[in-house]
Amino acid sequence: MQMQFSYEVKDTYAEVKSVGRLNMVAAPKLREVVNEVVAGGSNRVVVNLAETNFMDSSGLGALIGCLKAARQAGGDLRIAAVQPQVKMVLELTNMDRVLTAYPSAEEAFGDD
């Protein structure tokens, strides 16, 4: 069960799809992909977690690092389609207030 990341640059944001477990093995790869996206000129990033059923504190740490990278580039990072285990980890660590979850990738930057 290999963790995979792919991304697509859209009109107003870039969508990074995360598939599989977001654990200590996958976390550095997520950082690499988001850094690549931001370096490529997209500073509004949505991480689509529809197919991520597990995230640990390493995965959470990577998301926080990616959020900082997007903000340093003048943009933002938002998460979408959060599944129950990921929601639980965000809530228990109080990071649900920092990493705002949207129902879908399309809606994440829909308000601005």
Binding site: D56, S57, S58, L60, G61, A62, I64, G65, K68, V89, L92, T93, N94, M95, R97, V98
Partner: peptide, 12 residues
């Protein structure tokens, strides 16, 4: 704190 990228494992 919310900026930290590690150190949440044991609390979790």
């Amino acid at each position: 704190d919310s900026e930290a990228e590690s150190g949440r494992g044991l609390a979790l």
